Amino acid sequence: MANAPHGPASYFPAIEAKYGRPVDEWLTLLAATDVAGHSALVNWLKSEHGLGHGHATALVQFHLHPEKWARA
């Protein structure tokens, strides 16, 4: 499928299903936090919100570089 999301966006349906929040809400939380840097943001999502490492990494990667990833 040519229009299928790839990279971090491919995780978004699973993130929404597992944690019960839309991705846009997670991205809003990331934008609002004072935490900075990839690793620190991943650790913040894991410790404060209980996300798994892969899901936290996907959200942070998309948050930091949205222009790089397709989103359906």
Score class of each variant (00 low, 15 high):
33 T>C: 15
40 A>H: 12
31 A>P: 05
7 G>R: 13
58 A>S: 02
12 F>R: 06
5 P>A: 15
7 G>A: 07
71 R>W: 09
71 R>P: 07
25 E>T: 03
57 T>Y: 02
55 H>Y: 07
68 K>I: 09
7 G>H: 09
68 K>Y: 03
35 V>N: 07
51 L>T: 02
45 L>S: 00
30 L>G: 12
54 G>D: 02
54 G>V: 02
50 G>H: 06
65 H>Q: 14
70 A>P: 14
22 P>A: 13
1 M>C: 13
10 S>V: 11
11 Y>D: 10
67 E>Q: 15
33 T>F: 08
15 I>Y: 08
60 V>W: 04
66 P>R: 10
14 A>V: 09
44 W>V: 06
65 H>T: 13
2 A>L: 09
29 L>N: 15
46 K>Q: 08
69 W>P: 13
61 Q>E: 15
10 S>A: 15
36 A>T: 14
26 W>N: 07
39 S>N: 10
62 F>M: 07
8 P>A: 14
58 A>D: 00
65 H>A: 12
58 A>Q: 07
18 K>V: 08
59 L>T: 01
70 A>Q: 13
4 A>P: 10
54 G>M: 04
1 M>R: 05
58 A>H: 05
12 F>H: 11
69 W>H: 10
6 H>A: 11
14 A>G: 06
71 R>S: 12
20 G>D: 12
69 W>S: 05
48 E>I: 09
31 A>I: 06
1 M>W: 05
44 W>H: 15
18 K>A: 11
56 A>E: 02
14 A>L: 00
38 H>W: 10
70 A>D: 14
27 L>R: 04
65 H>G: 11
62 F>P: 03
68 K>V: 09
